[in-house]
Each structure stands twice: as C-alpha cells, then as structure tokens.
Design a protein around this nucleic acid. Sequence first.
DNA 1: TATGAATGAGGCTTCATTCAT
DNA 2: AATGAATGAAGCCTCATTCAT
Lengths: 222, 222, 222, 222
Amino acid sequence: MIQKKSLKDLINLSNMDNSMTEKQINILSSAIELFSEKGYEATATSEIAKKAKVAEGTIFRYYKTKKDLLFAIPIALSKASLFEIFLEDFNEILNDNHDNFEDFLRKIVINRKKFVSETAPILKVIIQEIPFHPELRSKILNTVIFPSVKNGTSIIERFKAKGQIVDMPSTTIINLIITSIFGYLFIHHIALPELPENEQDIEYLIQYILNGIGQNSTLKNT
Amino acid sequence: MIQKKSLKDLINLSNMDNSMTEKQINILSSAIELFSEKGYEATATSEIAKKAKVAEGTIFRYYKTKKDLLFAIPIALSKASLFEIFLEDFNEILNDNHDNFEDFLRKIVINRKKFVSETAPILKVIIQEIPFHPELRSKILNTVIFPSVKNGTSIIERFKAKGQIVDMPSTTIINLIITSIFGYLFIHHIALPELPENEQDIEYLIQYILNGIGQNSTLKNT
Amino acid sequence: MIQKKSLKDLINLSNMDNSMTEKQINILSSAIELFSEKGYEATATSEIAKKAKVAEGTIFRYYKTKKDLLFAIPIALSKASLFEIFLEDFNEILNDNHDNFEDFLRKIVINRKKFVSETAPILKVIIQEIPFHPELRSKILNTVIFPSVKNGTSIIERFKAKGQIVDMPSTTIINLIITSIFGYLFIHHIALPELPENEQDIEYLIQYILNGIGQNSTLKNT
Amino acid sequence: MIQKKSLKDLINLSNMDNSMTEKQINILSSAIELFSEKGYEATATSEIAKKAKVAEGTIFRYYKTKKDLLFAIPIALSKASLFEIFLEDFNEILNDNHDNFEDFLRKIVINRKKFVSETAPILKVIIQEIPFHPELRSKILNTVIFPSVKNGTSIIERFKAKGQIVDMPSTTIINLIITSIFGYLFIHHIALPELPENEQDIEYLIQYILNGIGQNSTLKNT
DNA sequence: TATGAATGAGGCTTCATTCAT
DNA sequence: AATGAATGAAGCCTCATTCAT
C-alpha cells in the first residue's frame, strides 16, 4: 500500500525519455505489486487491469503477452533503480580511493540496504521467477550479476594488495560477502519483512564480514 | 534424473507407518519433481498423474485438492528427512559435548550440505511457495525455523560461555551463521546448481564463519 | 434440419471400429452443420458445444484445437462416404465391363448426384475452407482428386480404344466431364439448393456430356 | 503482387465520379487482397489499415462497419469491371448480329476468361462470402446473375431459331454453358491457379460446348 | 479529415475437480 | 480402490469499434 506510490516513482525513474504513458506505468507497477503478492502465475491479467484502472485489452497494447509484462520488470529495474539509485552512488563509492576497507564495506552495505528496501517488490518478483524463465535468468546473469562480481573482484584485489584482506581467491571472497549481505537483506526485507530489525544488527553484519575476511583475522596465522 | 530414485526413497522415509501406498508415493514424488521444475501454479494435475502413472482422479483420492498436495510436501519432509537425516545426526552433533567450536561448525556445515543436496527439489518447492501460502509459512516457521534457531541458540551460548565466540547477541550470531551456510548452499545446490563448486570452497566458508565470530577476531578489541 | 439425422448417420459410417463415442459424433456433426451455415471462422466453439449438448471443454478432449475439428471433417468423409457410398458403387461401376459409354456415364452421374446430395454440408465446408488451409488442400488433392482423375483417365482410355469417345487428351476430357457434373451438382445442391430442379435436367446434362465428347460428335470431322 | 497495381486500377474504374479518395481506394483494394488471401473473418481491420497505410480509425470513416467494407466490393465490381470490362464488350458481342454460334461462343469464352483473370481476387472474395451473407447473395443474384441469364436466354433463342442449337430448354442450355465456362475458369484462375493451363485447352472447351449443344449433335436424331 | 489509444465483449483453450462405472 | 470422461469456470488474448485530439 505504502509502496504503491514509491513503486510508481521508481518506475518513473526508468522513464527519463518519457516513453511510457501514465497508463503504462500504472500497468507495470500494478503488475509488480500483484506478482510480488501472489506470484506471476497466480495473477490474472484481469486483476492487473482492475488495479491499474485500465481495460484488460489495454495491457496488451503495451505488452504483447503476459510474459512480456514480466520481462519488462527487470528492464525497468535496470533502467531505473540500478543505474540511478545503485550505480550512481556505487560509482562514487568505487571511484573514491578508499584507504580503509571498513569504510568501503560500510558504504556498500548501507547502499545495498537502501537499494533492496526500495526495490523490494521488484526484487521479489525477479527472484521468484528466475528459476522458471531461462531467458530471464541469462539476462540477469549477464547484465547484473557478472558485471557486479567483476567490479567487486577488482576492488577486492585492490584491498588485497594493500594487505587489508585475507588471502582467499577473490571470487570466493566476493561470494561470501554477497551471500552475507544479501542473505541478511533478503531475510529482513523480502522473505520475512515482519521480522523486527535491530538498529545494531547492520553494524554486527559489518563486523562479521570484516572479521571474516579482514587481514587481522586468524587466517593470517594459518 | 538421478534424484528421481532418491526422491522416492526420501519420501519413503516418511512412510515408516506404511500409511502411503506406492501409488501415493509416486504421486507425491512426481509432484515434487514437477513443482520444482515448473513451479506449483504452472504444473497441471494431469501432468502429475501422467508422470506418476495413475489416473487423474486418483490424485484426488489421496489429496482433496491440488493445494493439499503441495502442503503434503513439507509434511513429508519433516516426517522423513528432517527428523531422519537431519535431526538424527544433528542430535548426535548436539549431544556430543564438543570442546571445540571449529569442530562443531565443520560438522554442522557438512551435515547441512548433505541435507540440502539430498532434499534440493523439496527445498526448492518450499522456498518457492512459502511467500504465497501463509499457512505454509507459519507451519514451516513453527516446526522448522524456530526450533532450529532455539536449538542453535543454546549451543551458541555454550560456546560463548567457553569464551570461544565473540560477544554478539546469540540470535544475531545464529542469523549470520545460517545466512552464510544457507546462502552458500542455496547458491550452489538450488539456485545455480550448474556453478562449479571447488573442493576448497567449503573450507573457506568455514574459515570465514570462524573468523567472523571467533573470539580471536578483532571484535574482542572493540 | 432434415440433414441433422442423416449427417449423424453419415458420420457413423466412418465409425465402423466404434472409435467415436456418441458425444464425439454429436460434436463433429454439429460442427459440420454450423460451419456449413456460418463458415468456420464465424462459428464459435461455444455454439458447437451448445448444439452438441456437451460442455465446451469436452470438444477439446476429442479435438485438441478448433482447427483439428475442421480437419476431422474430410477424414470422416473419406472414411465414411467416400469409401462406403462412393467407392462401393463406384468400383462396381468401374469393374462392370461396360460396352456402352452412355450407360457408364449415366451411372456415374446418378452415383455422384446421390453422393453430393447426401454429403452436401460436408462438401460445402470443405469447398469453403480449402483455399485457406494448405494442409487441407494438399490432403484432398492427394487422397481424393488425383486418384479420382487417375481412375477416370484409365476408364476414358478404355472407351477411347473402343472408338466411343472423341480424340482429346484424356485429362482434358476428365476435366470437362468433372466440371460439368460437379458444376451442375454444385449449383443445385450446394450453392443454390432453393433453385428448382427439373426431373429432366439430369437427363439433359447426360446428353450434353455425351454430345460433347461422344465420337459421333462433329469433332470427328475436324 | 502483380495484381496489386491492377487491383487499384480496377477499383479506380469504379471511381469515374471521383467520389473515392486515394485513401479509400487503398483501403478497398487492401481489403480485397487480404480477404481473398485469408478470408473475410480471418482478416483483422488492423491489417487492412496497415496494408493501406492509414490509421485504423480511418477505415471506419469510409465504411461504418467491417461488413460494409465487404459489401463495397461487389458494388465496386459492378460499377467498374462489370459494366466496363464485361458489359462494354459484351454488349458489342451481343449486338453484333452473329450468324454463327461458334464465333459467338468463342468471343464469349475469351471475354469471360479475360474478365475472370483480371478480377480473380474480387471474384474469390465474393464467391467465398456469398453463402454467408443473404444480402450479398440477393444483390448479386439480382444485379448480375439474373440479368445475365436473361440476356443469355434471348441470345440462345435467337440461335435456336436459326436451327444452330439443339432443342433443350433455354435455361437449361444457359446453365450448362455457364457451368462449363465458369467451372473451367474457376478451376484454372481461382481454385487452383497453380495448375498448368494448356493453350489448346480453351479450344477444347469451346469444341466441347459446341458439340454439347450444337444442332449437328446426335440429339437431333433422338 | 485523420489519427491511434482505449475499450470490453467474446473467442479459444486449459485445468482442477467430480462422478458414474 | 481406481479410472478417465465430462464439466464449466476462468485465463489469456484478439479485434471491431469509438472518441478525444
């Protein structure tokens, strides 16, 4: 309910070129909301139409099939949130020549937290549907996951060179960090949003990761 | 394909009282396979019947509705694998009065890895459908998650008392550990089973967790 | 209306192996009637269901798609009428070693007249839809037209050898005869069934064809 | 493809009063082409609009409904081709006080052949749709068929009086001739245009008809 | 005059579920 | 107990037609 407005706002971010009419934005955001609540298959196009306050046929003017409507969701996400919310700050973080890994990590966690909490319904739909749509999977892998991992790896190497990070393969480190961050965010913002979140929890997460791969960890002695 | 047989075997574990006929086991295991491949909503009962080599009507003799068939999956899991595979060893692990947290952790990780890889299709279905079926969610939470967390907490406290674990709230620690372990297993065994898994990866995971919460971590200095 | 019964009877002829249930026969004959009245595209499957007194879904148990239902029509025709009504007598006619072309022609015309008048609605559907379904066209050409022409040609050659038929290419003769017979029948039984048909008309048709290709025609002098 | 231009030209013939804009001509000729390829019901107005390069709404400015667009086709035909191509020459033929039935027949056949081959797509649409639109049927019957038959009858009577034609009812004769000519043309130009047409075929057709009803036929002896 | 976005009725088809055998 | 034919509600999608611009 509260998301309704912010979801439309988010989608509007992907509409810099004004290629989407307001009706289309209503359709897309209604679809996201319903898909994330009931699942893609369990949502009828007639429900989407009703929620978006358009005729059912109108949906199909903009999206040839229901599946196309689903596929439009990650596209909007990547056009909007990813490059706006995410990459904007992210590049800043990345370009900042941090001396300190802890500072860097803290910024990343905060940034991801903001990203996940803002795009929760969109992410939920994508995560739900990825296993059943190979096209979707490969698109996400190629446009989001692989580039991010690659980016992350180069940053990790930099800190490794500075002796601030333990000597594990960079990909392994990335996987561990990503798992920790997203595992945490997934549980709190997507899977069990009703779970109470303590202010300090995020700080503990950072400490945990820092210890886990920081150079002053016991691993250095191994 | 390989799972096909072990899936039926697994389900048979939940059939200690022989309350299920072979037909019923076929139905349930066929359903699990198809649900995990195509999703619950996208699977037709007629497909399940065909795969199980029974008539469509027969399904409804055992399970009043399609939803009941879905709900039978976690029940079978909890009757079978959970208390057999999982708790069996788990209790052993738990009752073993380990002096060393690292040994304990390693056993847990190995045990969970075995569990996840053996029950992958079942877990996949449950994870997929949990968000859309509150009844399912609360059942899983109450019978699986909360007891496990509670169990885990008491163990954690023991090691804390021994001074082997960092001073964070026990629930936080449990969450971090669970997230790390399941995040790792989820990625390798459920989400992206095609991803190559290095022998050493599991060892790195253990190290990472150990460092993350071990008492010789920097946190002690904070 | 009168055809309703005879149409079902006709289709039953194609059901020697009892492979069709009564429901299926109702569906097929209802489809033929409606298709011939309103055209294939203009007939809704719901109308067919209503006329056949079955649920709409039942149609699709027997015929996977509406198009399959259309294609079942010539198949039933060829199984039933063609090989029963038509070929039965036709082979008799053909095997009778007629000395007289006129006798032969008269029998053919009578036989075809019976065939066309009995299968009028079926033929109407086929004629209507042939231009829009290449699969249908090639099937009809290969199973009905070409064999018939070939058969006819050999008979024509026999009468030519006996000097009873004018010296034109046999295929041309066949085409002219077929055109005359079917043109006549098409007009009277399919296109304009309301047109009054005189008893003598059929006799005139026979005379016309006889004169047209008979050896005592003027062409012998050319 | 080749017809595309000549179709527009043909329709333009019906536009002596310039009552149709170029857009309208495009719409009508696009409709004819598509109707003849896919059938009336299977053609969407949106396709017509696309082919005619106008907006969907524009079609309905000129033709209130899709059916009106269909009915405009025979009207255009009768305004244009029929009275131009057909009747123009036809009246000439008719007014020529032929002494010889054979000459007359040959002219008719040639004239009809030209007519049919030039207006093939238009005729195809009309023939296809006549059975399903009573309004269309009665219009065609009254404006084309009955006048033609009547015309033909009077000519036939003239040749009968001259003793050049066999003694059958004139209507019967007309039907036989029309059937032969149109049966031939229908097969070669509409139903199976891919069928090879021999130069001599048309000559055989003429001979066939001549023999069929000519006074030197055997019927005189009957 | 022309456009094309929007409509909503209706078409084909699928599918969970029932029930007579 | 088991079957599978039958059902009919509901889903996705198309399309002729309208109407504001």
